[in-house]
Every structure is written in C-alpha cells, then in structure tokens.
Design a protein around this nucleic acid. Sequence first.
DNA 1: AAGATCGAAATTATAGATAATTTTGATCGC
DNA 2: GCGATCAAAATTATCTATAATTTCGATCTT
Lengths: 222, 222
Amino acid sequence: MTKPAEDTIAVRIAKALAERIIAGTIEPGSRLRQDHVAEEFETSHVPVREAFRRLEAQGLAISEPRRGVRVASFDLSEVKEVAAMRAALEVLALRHAAPHLTAAILDKAEQARRDCDAATDVRAWEEANRRFHRTLVAPCGMKRLLATIDDLHAASARFLFSAWRSEWEARTDHDHRAILNALRNGDLETAIATLARHAQWIGERPVRTASGATRGAFAIVG
Amino acid sequence: MTKPAEDTIAVRIAKALAERIIAGTIEPGSRLRQDHVAEEFETSHVPVREAFRRLEAQGLAISEPRRGVRVASFDLSEVKEVAAMRAALEVLALRHAAPHLTAAILDKAEQARRDCDAATDVRAWEEANRRFHRTLVAPCGMKRLLATIDDLHAASARFLFSAWRSEWEARTDHDHRAILNALRNGDLETAIATLARHAQWIGERPVRTASGATRGAFAIVG
DNA sequence: AAGATCGAAATTATAGATAATTTTGATCGC
DNA sequence: GCGATCAAAATTATCTATAATTTCGATCTT
C-alpha cells in the first residue's frame, strides 16, 4: 500500500508535512526533528532535510542553522501581509488572464462559487474558495506568478484553519458573485477592484486557547 | 580566502551557484551535476542537493526527478512576468514603507541614485539600482514580501547580465529622481505611479550569439 | 552490401541508507 | 553562579541501489 510514488521521497514528505502544518495538526513553533520524521516515513534523514528546505521556501517552516527546523509561527501582521500580497498578485494575474477567459472557464468558476456558498465546514469552504480564485487567474499562464500565489493560498489556509478549527456557518459570498458578473459583462476594472478589496477581507473570531483564555483569532476569508 | 562561513555548507554552495547563474557564468539549460559540484566545493553530495532545492525555490534552477537539475532558461515572456510582479509588489511595499520613510533613508536612496547614474559597467549599475529600490521598500518591514522582491531582483539581474554582458553607457535615470522628489514632497501617489511604470521598463539590445547571428535580447532596466 | 533502426548491455548520475563528526543545550559539581 | 562534562540532535561523509543515458551490436530493409 506504499504510494505509487511518482514523486521523489523528499517531495512526498514535504507535501505530507505541509498538509499537517496547514491543517494545524503540528503547532506553530514546534520543532521538526529530522530523525523523528525520518523514522515515521521509514526513510533516512537525507530526503527529510530536502523536504525541510522546500517547506522553508514556502514560508511554512523556519530553519536556524545547526539548531534545527521549526514550524513557522505567525501573527496578525503576517496575516495582513499575506492578504495584501495576494490581493496585489491576484489582481495582476486576473488582468493578464482576462483576455483568455472563456465561457467554459467562467462556468467552472461559477461551480466553485456555488460549492463555496454551500460549504458546511471550513475545509470544504477553503477548497472551493481556492478553486474559485485559481480558476480565474490560471489562464494568465504565468508560472512564476501562479506558484507564488499558490504559496500565499497555503499560508491563508493555515491562518484560516488556525482560527476556524471547526464550526462554520454557510454564507453567501457576494464578492464572488460580483466578480463573476463583472467578468461576464466584460467589465474587467470592476472585477479587479472587487477582487482587490475581497482578497484583503480579514475576519476575526474569538478562540479559546489551551489555557482556557479567549483571544481574537484573525484569518483571511476571501 | 575560504569564507568564514557562519552559514551552513549548503547555504554557501547555494549562494555561490546563484551568483554564477545570475552572472551568466553557467549557461541557462546546462546541467548541474551534483558530484561535480560536490567535488569542487570539497564536500559530499548531501549539502549540494540541499543547495539545489534552494535554487529551485528561487527559480534559478529546475529539477526533474531522477534526471537531475539544470539552470533555468528564460524567454521574453518571463522577463515581462518578472517585471510585472516586481512592479506590483514594489508598489505594495512602497505604500507600506512610506509612513516609515525618514530623511536619512531618503538620503541613502539619493546616494544610491547617484551611484546608479555614475555607473560605468552593468554590474555596478545593477548593484546601485537594487540598492535604490531596496532602500525605499525595506522600511515596510514585511519579511515575506521583501524576500519575494529580492528573488525577483535576482531574476532581473540575470536577464540584465545576459543581455548586457559588457558595454554600458552611463545614463541619468529620470524616474529615480522623480520618485525621490515625489517622496520628499509627500506626494506618495505620484511616487507609486512612477515606480509602477518604472519597474516595467524593458530594454532591448541586439546581442551576437555564439553562432554569429544577431538576436534581440531583453532585460528589465528599471 | 550499406544504411538505418531497434534493443540490450555498460556506463554514468541521481536518490537514498548508513555511519561518523560537530555543535549545541543541559546537568552536575565546585 | 561559573565551568566542565555529557547527551541529544544537526550537519556532513561514505557507501549502496536504482534509474537514465549512451554505446555498441544485431537485425531488417532497401
């Protein structure tokens, strides 16, 4: 039952760890010890180290030379930073994608929008929301830009899951609808202006910490 | 003359290789063979592989599993892509840096601007130009954003050195001056609008290829 | 028979496992 | 407290296996 593994082991480990970090299974700030990970994945630590470098590049982990790797922690200022970067880059991507948008693509986005509004848990919402944004910007065909946006979405998801570990109430996202409408009408500037605001929408939510106290948790919900 | 090396060996190798790739010492598309590199740096292949992962993340190399790593090649469309991303992100950074700009910082930028105009070779110009931009956006204090911009500058430099291997004529950059003036006058919007245009300025230059033919080479010169 | 094409063996390089070496952090004794 | 000793964990080296490329030869076609 070992995965077919078209990927290299290092890539597999990186993906698995990224998923856990995003889901919040591993706490921010906690150490990633290479031989523990190696043991778990039944490999040596060589591929594990390579996986660490990859996570580091994505901003999911930070490495202190000779002292090990830990899961990156974050605060409100970083949530804002990621939101701002996402807004700037998605706007850019949409502007370049616009000439290549077809009815079929807009239909795919429409489906993602519906899934988003219908979502009853955070994970489903996040997946659909990411799909919505991805669908609209992917036709720009700019690989570096898209890769950077993907990394930012991973960070967004992490913030989101950290705040909304469970309990999600379905809500209609009017921005999504407005963006699609504008695009269908060929009104690119309205679509872009809406997206720029939308991606910077930061929600707040009270969260009970381990110690029982309540703090405000923030996440990008656009 | 071996570097004091506070860094780990992998980091040292990554920096050294990045420098060569940017300078064009290693041709785009050429293979990076791990034990050759290991031999040259007198280490094993393990830190070399980690260095490769880092170069990959910066977009300077691409890795095909089980087939090795090669220096990333690029074309006009990627030059445009990097220019557009730089414009978008530097504008964002400048907007957040503006409230923290002091007279001392603007003086540092002024010095960089002068060095830029006085530069008689590409390398000197690139260094001063990068310093100019860095000085203005750094006060935003957004680490992820600044790291991404740095990577884009590395790519820019690579395009530039590829086109202007030698021969550089000093020229006065009016945009730099305009940006600084606007900032001194507190006219942020003008500064930002100028920067947005400026960072997307792509120069063309005929270049003699190895086969003797002449092709157009493009690079970001802002 | 000459040329081309396909396939198998040999070579080369990458990926991973195991082993050795530092470096850092902590504990115990003074 | 301060310093030395010890243990744990990171970094790097060496070694092995597996995948990819190249070479060389055989066979088939013209």
